[in-house]
Design a protein around this nucleic acid. Structure first.
Lengths: 343, 343
DNA sequence: ACTGATAATGCAAACGTGTGCAAAGGAATT
DNA sequence: AATTCCTTTGCACACGTTTGCATTATCAGT
């Protein structure tokens, strides 16, 4: 049997309420008795029952984190940021992957409601509005990271994809490129639009034309789609001299495709990635990419939920939406070069 | 207020025990009333209180997963395997990263004990014996995945690293290599030893000598260590013609180092990885590596804890240790070639 | 020595469930 | 019509905490 607060009380011939207070550091209890209690609690291997406690307090000290895929290295880093601040604030995390499956989403949301998580962080999972309402309806605060759906959430952390995409494009333009193509991921919503938009804005600033066929979308964010995309662009006439890719995975596929086609990077074609996932440094050539502060995004998201959970905050504030937009930084490596032969 | 079982009872002018039974599908309740109850439960947006329930039942339907790093792509895939079967069996998962920090480990173990997780899966976190005893002592079953420490656990899932390493080495020998070096990760315990051991065994089978300086250890599993390692091997005389790397990350670093040194792969040097993490396919050249069934390892681990939790199993069995050893498969890509100029 | 205030502790109810046992209501058997 | 039996429901307690309130012990001030 696990030892309870009452066991300790009995052993010390004391009321269990005293034990409870002592263990929670109440100032009501005399130092001497508090000390004795803590000591025998230790001896008996006592451990709080989170269940019993949260039954009374309506707090579980647990956060729910919903991610679309755990094995996506991008989420891995965000998760790390979240986990770190959760841990530092004595919160545990419930993790679940939706895999873009509505039925799984339903079950995840249900399970998290049953466990009465104090708050929820949704990572790029395009969770349906209906599901997320299940939380807000019952007063469970939600923070959304890099929201993909068009729906608006009150509290969210974004990466500034427009700005990031502009940085990348500007760099390429600075290298003298004029025929720049964009390879997007149609399966991704808002993120993709904003990256396209940033690309177009920056091109427009420099009065560079973007023919419609220079913007292409592939149906996913994996490397295999980069291979597809590059095949498309190579068939174009005139051919672009640089390709801005939706993310690093796709860019890796593009590099592979170009190599197979015997086109040297960056000699004959410049390529950029996006996100700076861990291995983008080890493609060949190393990928010039936009370093998105993933871990920081995660930790900010966690800080935000915790803030929403803070009683002081709940009272004082007018409950205005909080949206935090973080900027990334261009990371220049070796996949881009100046155009040598202008058209 | 969240609606409780009693609210439903009151609304239907019925006892709350009847509601409880109906909602748990007890056969005692008449179909007609059960139906009415389920329906109004739905209407009122009722959701079980996991806390209250587990207070009575001593079951939380939650598993703890301790990992050393969430953002390691290797663990990401294992996690996915775990998460999938947990979800399919109505279990939630508590995730925490130890970061190799003993203090964090302590807090994680405490938190999981407080939350009374039904079982724990430890992934390559070299959790101290003292901490893991905290679980077993209180009857919480543990399954260990790829245990690094020398300590023995009753239930564990291993990858057969000896066999994997032999497969890789045999392949290289088959290509005609005779001077083969091994680049290990000294920070990793058992895994590293076994991979070295497999390497040596296979070399011995073919009567090939392994000079002491051909086995080198770097202090970590990241790519930067691959760069270090390759510098060491290149200075050797005679130089090896192939390098067997501890894992894909290190191999990626080796590829980078070789490229910087102007040595072509696989023309002048063959390189192998280990694990087959997602991007090993996108290094240049694509890495020949040992495909470790990571997702499967994860799902097997989850199945094993669930089995340990099963009452039937607990009764029937003589409680013998269960150790499952899974074999990986050599994945031939383009980082290895036959030796052209034998010494 | 008595009052009043303060510090420390105990009592008991509640949180939302599950479940053994008793009870009620029929239906079936005698 | 009385008995037995089965089906369905309710009663009441327990799970391990927290917490408002009452109670006791302690002590200073008159």
């Amino acid at each position: 049997m696990t030892t309870t607060i009452k066991d300790i009380a009995k052993r010390l011939d004391i009321s269990h309420s005293t034990v409870s207070r002592a263990l929670n550091g109440s100032s009501l209890i005399a130092d001497s008795t508090a000390k004795r209690i803590r000591q025998t609690a230790e001896e008996m291997g006592y451990m709080h029952s989170a269940a019993a406690r949260s039954l009374k307090t309506n707090r579980t000290q647990a956060l729910g984190v919903i991610v679309s895929q755990v094995d996506d290295p991008f989420f891995g880093e965000i998760l790390r940021g979240i986990e770190e601040v959760a841990q530092n604030n004595e919160y545990s995390i419930f993790m679940a992957a939706s895999q873009h499956d509505p039925e799984k989403e339903r079950r995840i949301v249900q399970s998290m409601r049953e466990h009465r998580v104090d708050g929820v962080i949704i990572c790029s999972a395009s969770l349906s509005q209906a599901q997320s309402k299940q939380f807000t309806k019952y007063g469970i605060p939600i923070v959304v990271v890099n929201n993909q759906s068009a729906e608006d959430y009150r509290y969210s952390i974004y990466h500034d994809d427009v700005d990031g995409s502009r940085q990348v494009t500007r760099y390429l333009i600075g290298l003298g490129h004029q025929r720049i193509a964009y390879l997007g991921n149609s399966a991704s919503g808002r993120t993709n639009w904003e990256r396209i938009s940033g690309f177009q804005q920056e091109m427009a600033v420099s009065n560079l034309a973007v023919p419609a066929e220079y913007i292409f979308g592939v149906p996913g964010g994996g490397p295999e789609n980069g291979v597809k995309g590059v095949a498309y662009f190579l068939a174009l006439e005139p051919r672009p001299t640089a390709i801005v890719c939706f993310n690093d995975m796709i860019a890796a596929g593009v590099l592979r495709g170009l190599q197979d086609a015997g086109i040297s990077v960056p000699g004959q074609m410049s390529v950029t990635g996006f996100d700076n996932i861990v291995f983008s440094e080890f493609t060949s050539p190393p990928l010039t990419t936009l370093d998105q502060p993933k871990r920081f995004i995660g930790s900010e998201a966690a800080h935000l939920v915790l803030k929403l959970l803070d009683v002081k905050f709940q009272e004082e504030t007018n409950q205005e939406p909080i949206v935090q937009i973080l900027k990334g930084k261009l990371l220049i490596r070796q996949s881009c070069a100046p155009v040598n032969n202008l058209p």
